[in-house]
């Protein structure tokens, strides 16, 4: 299981891109952090989510 934004999800083995495709996130409006480090945008296609990973998808909305 992978903990994403506090929720345990059965997505270990998927790439970040594969996980994101299951969600409503707009990839132009997010930053993805795993176990304390940023996952680079250029690595979304290759970075594989692992069992026990703690992931935070920071999604930005407009206004400032």
């Amino acid at each position: 299981m992978v903990k994403i934004n506090g929720e345990l999800l059965d997505v270990a083995g998927k790439t970040v891109t594969e996980y994101l495709s299951l969600t409503d996130y707009n990839t132009k409006r997010i930053a993805v952090e795993r176990n304390g480090d940023i996952i680079l945008k250029s690595e979304y296609d290759t970075a594989i989510l692992c069992e026990g990973d703690i992931v935070e998808v920071v999604s930005f909305v407009g206004g400032g």
Partner: peptide, 21 residues
């Protein structure tokens, strides 16, 4: 980061975290 457009916010955050950690 004090932009108003979501895409600009995400761009700056990703760039800074990558290039100036």
């Amino acid at each position: 980061e004090a932009f108003d457009v979501a895409e600009s916010k995400a761009m700056l955050v990703n760039e800074v975290l990558e290039k100036m950690p």
